[in-house]
């Protein structure tokens, strides 16, 4: 006997979650050319995991993306961002001066691209990790949405 009321929800969510994650990476790496960037991409990745948690239950999501990983990710994100600044200092520039990353003259943009890519990666990790930590802190107290809540 099948007691699963949410089979349509689960099948659709299973199809959507990879697409949502792909879209997050598109937003991340297309931020230089269109709207978007690390913050939005981080939130979208967090939402993909949260959708998984809402549909399949928080314990399943915690097995897939453990809370210890999300809070480390948040810290690592801030460290990546700050690290790009120190990288520029090591190359002899000011803190977060991307032009100094590869000792470029003004007008060449390789350092700007790499620097912004680096800090956007830091923002992505920091935001998605922090958002998932917040979600786990709330949702970890109630195992899942009960049937009568829908």
């Amino acid at each position: 006997m099948n007691t699963d009321h949410h089979v349509i929800l689960r099948v659709i969510a299973k199809m959507l979650i990879p697409v949502i994650t792909m879209f997050a990476f598109y937003v991340q790496f297309h931020g230089d050319f269109g709207p978007g960037g690390g913050f939005q991409a981080g939130v979208i990745i967090a939402v993909a995991v949260i959708l998984y948690a809402l549909v399949f239950g928080v314990p399943a999501a915690m097995r897939a993306v453990p809370p210890v990983f999300t809070r480390s990710l948040a810290a690592v994100g801030v460290m990546i961002y700050a690290g790009v600044g120190f990288w520029a200092m090591l190359q002899g520039g000011h803190y977060l001066e991307y032009q100094a990353l590869f000792h470029e003259p003004p007008g060449e943009h390789h350092g700007q691209h790499i620097g912004i890519l680096g800090i956007e990666l830091g923002v992505l990790c920091g935001v998605s990790g922090a958002m998932l930590t917040i979600f786990y802190a709330f949702a970890g107290r109630v195992a899942e949405i009960r049937d009568e809540d829908w």
Partner: peptide
Amino acid sequence: AVALLLGFGERSL
């Protein structure tokens, strides 16, 4: 701050 106030949510797991 939220994690410190509410816990990391691992207890239920």
